[in-house]
């Protein structure tokens, strides 16, 4: 399915930045000016709990 190019561009920028700066504790969450509760965005467990 086609996803708007603007969404993919923003997504690419966010995940590439996150992958480069993961060791610095930054994340790809929204920027709201407040200190984040979590240092990095946790990988989602989804249902891989076995």
């Amino acid at each position: 399915m086609k996803v708007p190019a603007s969404v993919l561009k923003a997504m690419a920028a966010a995940v590439i930045v996150a992958s480069v700066t993961a060791c610095t504790g930054e994340d790809i969450g929204p920027k709201n000016g407040k200190k984040k509760e979590e240092k990095t965005l946790a990988s989602c467990p989804a249902c891989g709990m076995g």
Partner: peptide
């Protein structure tokens, strides 16, 4: 909302191969 997963999926989205997404909406409680 996982950087490595999205990085892996990005080329598939760009190629319009992904026809639907499943979202674990309750995993973003933090």
């Amino acid at each position: 909302l996982d950087p490595n997963l999205l990085l892996a999926a990005l080329p598939l989205f760009e190629a319009e191969r992904v026809e639907a997404v499943e979202w674990s909406f309750d995993a973003l409680y933090k």
